[in-house]
């Protein structure tokens, strides 16, 4: 009895030690970024333990309140660009992928196999591989250097991805549930809206979050298709801080933190939707 309790105590300590190490390992670079962002001037001294000397918000000030050539708050504008693009991409992906994924999960139709293959193919290549053809297409339709163009580009990869995610989720929702709803008096559409969608909520949340984050963080395509400051997204802006001629590491770090905050907030807010096993208990004993 005693021996077992002691061994438990040891195991617990070991587990905690490992966890603390892992967390420290993951947090160390982030601490550095915070330190850089809070240290005034251009070259903070580099110690082993990153602690800002004489912390100041001067970099944040310079980044967030930056003014463009016309004197407007250009960073705020660029942040709105990023938000609009990421939100629209996520919404588009969910709106298109939900019915598509449901159809692929539940119905048999002509060309289902080849559709699946085609969708899979779009996921096999990195988006960058299509950068040049996409550029030519956007150019042809006059959407280079526009938010709409970038949203369309992001949607082309977000939609198939979302279809795969959601199809898996719908496959995991027993058909019995819809059938029960239909016997209970629902039309097929009502069964979908009132039973399937709520049961798929965690998957919808995760998929939307992924689409949002991918669009929010994407750099290469954004840098390729956007050349005017007013339409830049945040990753492009960040990159400019450490350009060829001058490296504003402090601003870069401050900007990086500002870029991360919305994603962290979103994660936090979606947490309650991320509880897995929402269908638990619906079927079987």
């Amino acid at each position: 009895m005693r021996a077992r309790e002691e061994s438990k105590w040891w195991i617990e300590l070991a587990c905690n030690a490992v966890l603390v190490l892992a967390v420290a390992f993951a947090l160390y670079p982030i601490l550095w970024v915070v330190t850089l962002a809070l240290s005034p001037g251009e070259a903070p001294q580099r110690g082993v333990i990153p602690v800002p000397v004489a912390p100041s918000l001067e970099h944040f000030d310079a980044v967030v309140l930056a003014r463009g050539d016309d004197g407007s708050l250009v960073f705020i504008r660029q942040m709105m660009n990023s938000l609009v693009i990421a939100l629209t991409t996520a919404t588009t992906a969910i709106l298109i992928a939900t019915p598509a994924a449901f159809a692929m999960s539940r119905f048999r139709f002509v060309g289902k196999g080849s559709t699946t293959l085609a969708l899979l193919a779009t996921q096999m290549f990195p988006g960058v591989a299509a950068a040049i053809p996409l550029y030519l297409i956007l150019d042809a339709v006059g959407l280079i250097d526009t938010l709409t163009g970038l949203i369309l580009v992001y949607a082309t990869s977000a939609v198939p991805f979302a279809i795969f995610q959601l199809r898996g989720a719908f496959d995991g929702i027993p058909v019995d549930l819809e059938e029960a709803a239909m016997v209970d008096g629902a039309t097929r559409f009502e069964a979908f809206v009132r039973v399937v969608l709520p049961a798929a909520r965690p998957a919808l949340a995760v998929t939307a979050l992924f689409a949002f984050m991918t669009a929010w963080n994407e750099f290469i395509l954004a840098a390729t298709f956007l050349s005017r400051e007013e339409v830049f997204t945040l990753p492009v802006v960040l990159q400019r801080f450490v350009g060829e001629h001058h490296a504003h590491w402090g601003r870069f770090a401050a900007g990086a933190i500002v870029v991360s905050v919305p994603v962290m907030a979103l994660f936090y807010w979606l947490q309650r939707h991320l509880v897995s096993g929402l269908t638990a208990g619906g079927v079987k004993g």
């Binding site: 029960a180 016997v183 209970d184 049961a199």
Partner: peptide, 21 residues
């Protein structure tokens, strides 16, 4: 007729309770 117009109720082997309700 569609199931909903038949005025029948069915108890499934899996119970098929609505998990979110």
């Amino acid at each position: 007729l569609a199931p909903r117009d038949r005025d029948v109720a069915m108890v499934f082997q899996s119970y098929a309770l609505y998990p979110h309700l």
